[in-house]
């Protein structure tokens, strides 16, 4: 599935519910289903600043694609990370950098998370993009010198 196909699927998942409590229940469920992160990644090095709860985001680069694992001590935050990972993990750096993340607005996640909280969400997106840029410039090697 493409990034946009997954985004559309997520928008569908959320559109089923009118009540925000149900949407939160879905987020909580997704947060619980998020695969466990390698304990070695729950360190300062992988901590994202700008979130109300602690969020760790750990990238790995295989065959030109970036894979993310992540964790948070708050379950709703884990749910939000789970969504981001579903959309952006296993993609090439270019795909990540050029992705238009419209699902955040269309699910209402953006407007329903107050500024400090959505800052947390934006911090996560920003960090994912930074990793993409970092891995992207390494591939192919020496591209920066060109």
């Amino acid at each position: 599935m493409t990034i946009n196909e997954i985004q559309d699927a997520i928008i569908d998942d959320f559109s089923v519910f009118d009540d925000w409590m149900d949407k939160y229940n879905l987020l909580i469920e997704m947060g619980r289903d998020l695969p466990l992160i390698d304990p070695g990644c729950r360190t300062e090095e992988y901590l994202i600043e700008g979130c109300q709860s602690r969020v760790w985001l750990c990238p790995s680069f295989e065959n030109g694609k970036i894979f993310f694992t992540a964790d948070s001590d708050a379950i709703i935050t884990r749910g939000i990370i789970a969504l981001l990972i579903r959309v952006l993990s296993g993609r090439s750096p270019d795909e990540i950098i050029s992705a238009d993340l419209y699902f955040i607005d269309r699910t209402g996640l953006h407007q329903n998370l107050s500024p400090t909280r959505s800052n947390g969400l934006l911090s996560m997106v920003k960090q994912i993009r930074l990793y993409a840029i970092a891995f992207g410039t390494k591939q192919p090697p020496g591209r920066l010198n060109g």
């Binding site: 925000w20 409590m21 939160y24 109300q52 709860s53 001590d73 708050a74 379950i75 709703i76 935050t77 329903n112 998370l113 107050s114 909280r117």
Partner: peptide, 20 residues
């Protein structure tokens, strides 16, 4: 339960508290 999870749900119920 993380304070932030508590605060988020209370917010959706129309209850303003502070967390952190």
């Amino acid at each position: 339960i993380h304070m932030y999870d508590t605060g988020m749900i209370l917010d959706k119920l129309g209850i303003a508290v502070r967390t952190g």
